[in-house]
């Protein structure tokens, strides 16, 4: 038996090699397809989270995809694929399931420009979730937010959550903005600066909701 099996191996070598090449191509094709399917699953998870968040929002909203960014040190902004024909107007707030993203500043027919909350032109009325102190969140050139106009005697510690306040006319209230990560005391004055890290990972946003707050 043994010599016959070995003899067959040699005899059918070419057929086996052709079969191997065909199977290798099939495996490569299926691997590529798997990557595509993983991408679909990921997108599905993102959309499910966004839909769940959209259902919880009391205002109507329009979902949009991020289609471009501005590579600039002076600004943090992005372009979304919804515009005037979808009901987008200047000043509308942009959010996602993780929190505040930014604000619409320019609207075209099919697209809009959004400044992120780390942009120096951005500001929103904020509230410390724990102590209920009010303040103003604004962007900085270093890519992080700053909490200003807070009472000098406010008891704020690193880790405190910052949310949108009802004083904000554009943003729905009680949306998470971020977390206090650093407290800087100015050496020559009595003022204190609070640096706030946004809860949304701004470099990884792909889908957002534009809140139509009327």
């Amino acid at each position: 038996m043994f010599p016959i099996r070995e003899f067959k191996k040699i005899l059918y070598y070419h057929r086996t090699f052709e079969e191997y090449k065909r199977l290798k191509n099939d495996v490569n094709f299926l691997k590529a397809r798997m990557v595509g399917l993983e991408e679909v699953v990921r997108e599905n998870t993102q959309l499910e989270k966004l839909l769940e968040f959209k259902r919880k929002l009391i205002y109507s909203s329009v979902a949009a995809n991020v289609v471009g960014r501005d590579p600039s040190f002076w600004n943090s902004s992005m372009i979304i694929d919804k515009g005037a024909k979808d009901g987008i107007k200047e000043g509308l707030s942009v959010v996602n399931s993780l929190g505040v993203v930014g604000k619409v500043v320019e609207v075209a027919e099919d697209s809009s420009k959004v400044i992120l909350l780390t942009d120096p032109q951005f500001s929103v009325a904020a509230l410390l979730q724990r102590t209920r102190e009010t303040g103003l969140i604004s962007g900085t050139l270093q890519g992080i937010c700053r909490l200003r106009f807070v009472d000098e005697n406010a008891n704020i510690v690193v880790g405190d959550k910052v949310i949108t306040s009802s004083l904000s006319s554009n943003f729905p209230e009680h949306l998470i903005i971020g977390e206090v990560v650093e407290i800087i005391e100015e050496p020559n004055s009595s003022s204190v600066q609070f640096l706030v890290q946004p809860s949304v990972s701004l470099s990884q946003i792909e889908k957002v909701l534009v809140v139509i707050k009327e």
């Binding site: 040190f73 002076w74 120096p120 032109q121 900085t140 050139l141 270093q142 890519g143």
Partner: peptide, 21 residues
């Protein structure tokens, strides 16, 4: 130019705009 339209920190400009660029 930015200073004409809104307050911009000189120190932040040096650290986060000029130096990395």
């Amino acid at each position: 130019l930015f200073l004409i339209f809104h307050k911009t920190s000189f120190v932040e400009t040096l650290k986060y705009v000029l130096w990395p660029q």
